[in-house]
Nucleic acid binder design. Structure first.
Lengths: 336, 336
DNA sequence: TAAAATTACGTGAACGTTTACAGAGCCATT
DNA sequence: AATGGCTCTGTAAACGTTCACGTAATTTTA
């Protein structure tokens, strides 16, 4: 518990503390002998550099703030894990804050992190209210968003190509012979979901399919929402042979409703999701879905942020990563 | 991007910077007028206190380090989320590091966090190698473990009562009429698993049941392990009517193997897990299990750590929280 | 009304680093 | 032998706070 400082080491070594600092920082302005001697002494004395003091003078902390809506959501917690590992490999630590999908909290923890002098912030917005506060937040500190909602704003962000995702999904279902595909759970307010819907609609048009859309009036894409909506849907006669859900969680709810209604997947109807959350890989679920490249997103977000930190005056960057098909057991090929 | 400091505010206000500091810290040694005037000015000028500088002189950072094996595991990411929220409510931020179940990394990030001058560390060990390094780590900074492996060491920890958990589970299965209960996936090296096994064995003895144990030679309790082990098990004739798994993930693997073998749960055999991870609540899984009180554990760990920070010389604390039964659909009552 | 107590504020040191600058010692060049 | 240029090390200021101390102005007390 006794904090041994540069000065302590310097005193024992019989040099000034600037010399010790030089020995540790790898400065060339020091002879090899003294460097070795000092380094050895540091070890012996159990010296640990105080990064607070260093931050004080260097005017940077090597800390990245992360604002994430929730760590209960597997997609976000996995992303968080990736971000932490990659950031640490690049010499940065992560200060994590959960916003609980609450925009006031988002602003509050943003200010908190700024006060903590983080070098930059990676933010996964929890909703759409973020637009109002965008510039007042990002003017304070370099910020990168992980979100598909920001095309029209001068901000840095990385996201997955949602349009392309539903395009891939629709084409896949088409290739299996499906001609009546229901797009399930289109949320109105989210731009992410708008792009997914558009990918579906555009592909329908390209393939000459008639689009069927079941919009969601809910503000989140939970299993419960999927279950409720699908219960309604299955209670009537329908001609669709496949359902493309706007999110995996919805699809899992749909699965349950299908089970309750005695409808078998994929025998009676094919089902696809979007996100590839870890749940979906469970054999009991085994959902064919569109993968978001979590690791790539994490790496890209950190890289982008560090670029912005190094060069804050640079143009805003955007990176849109390609999604990919994950083929599992929830879709089947049907006769034409 | 222009950092406005105490001095700037002081200059504009025409007072010394000590006065500004007093106005902000709520010191009584200042008149109400000047305080209001300064506070208003701070707002106008967009002043944010620099917590680095404050940490420098106060010799504390109000930061807690968290070392967690992985954020892919839902149990741990949920725990992390709870820790963050509660710690923030108590005025602390969380610096999170993933150890990837690697003990060398555990030691490395511990040192990193110490260098960052965190006020304390909450550590969820990823394995058993932790024993070797225990005292050399915890002598550096107040530390609280979340782990059931530390009864024999003078450390602070909180955990769930694993013995009680399997006791509850065994009694529950007994109450449903089961007399032949297999304990599935007992890991040898983990003390957590040792306690779970002991709870089962003790309860068998108490109830006059003959224990059946299927040990696991694997070092982790994954779905794949459960699937493989259960495949073997189901390929032979067995008399057990219920399986109690040492972890939910194992049970999910068992479910899959049962499905492959044409064995229906709970009709043909009852199945229980331990942990209550979020997967288990999915209707497609619907696993009866033993809950670990994540939120209570998080709150207790933070409270305990802050106690230790305030009073480092105090006796080591241990808190063992009660688990609880979560009744779902994977067990059935059988005729006696 | 003088002494004592109180209030409100300023002064300056401290926290543990980094770094610009200066300077000492040595060797090579003219 | 004087000058210049190295190489190495020391000095001191700075980063933005907090806080112990000092002190002037004001109020209270005897």
């Amino acid at each position: 518990m006794a904090p041994v400082t540069l000065k302590d080491v310097a005193k024992v070594a019989g040099v000034s503390y600037a010399t010790v600092s030089r020995a540790l920082s790898g400065s060339p302005e020091i002879s090899e002998d003294t460097r070795c001697r000092i380094l050895k002494l540091c070890k012996e004395m159990g010296y640990t550099p105080n990064s607070i003091a260093r931050s004080m003078v260097k005017r940077r902390t090597d800390i990245i703030g992360l604002i994430v809506p929730s760590l209960n959501n597997p997609f976000m917690s996995e992303l968080t894990g990736q971000l932490e590992i990659y950031a640490r490999n690049r010499g940065y630590n992560l200060m994590v804050c959960c916003s609980s999908y609450d925009h006031d909290l988002e602003k509050e923890v943003f200010a908190l992190l700024v006060g903590r002098q983080v070098d930059g912030i990676i933010m996964i917005p929890g909703g759409n209210e973020i637009y109002e506060s965008l510039s007042s937040l990002t003017s304070q500190v370099p910020t990168v968003f992980i979100s598909d909602n920001l095309q029209d704003y001068p901000e840095n962000y990385v996201c997955v190509d949602n349009f392309r995702g539903t395009q891939i999904a629709t084409e896949y279902l088409y290739s299996l012979g499906h001609r009546d595909i229901l797009y399930f759970g289109a949320r109105q307010k989210s731009k992410t979901h708008k792009h997914r819907l558009e990918g579906y609609l555009a592909t329908c048009e390209k393939l000459g399919l008639e689009p069927h859309v079941l919009p969601s009036s809910y503000s989140r894409s939970s299993r419960e929402v999927g279950y409720t909506m699908a219960g309604d849907y299955f209670s009537k006669k329908n001609r669709e042979t496949a359902i493309l859900c706007a999110a995996d969680m919805l699809a899992i709810g749909v699965m349950q409703a299908a089970f309750d209604a005695g409808i078998r997947i994929p025998r009676d109807i094919s089902l696809m999701g979007f996100d590839n959350i870890s749940f979906s890989a469970l054999p009991q679920i085994d959902l064919t879905t569109i993968n978001q490249p979590t690791q790539q997103m994490a790496i890209a977000a950190v890289d982008m942020l560090l670029d912005r930190i190094k060069n804050p005056e640079a143009e805003h960057a955007r990176l849109i990563l390609p999604p990919s098909l994950v083929e599992r057991k929830s879709c089947r090929s049907i006769a034409k």
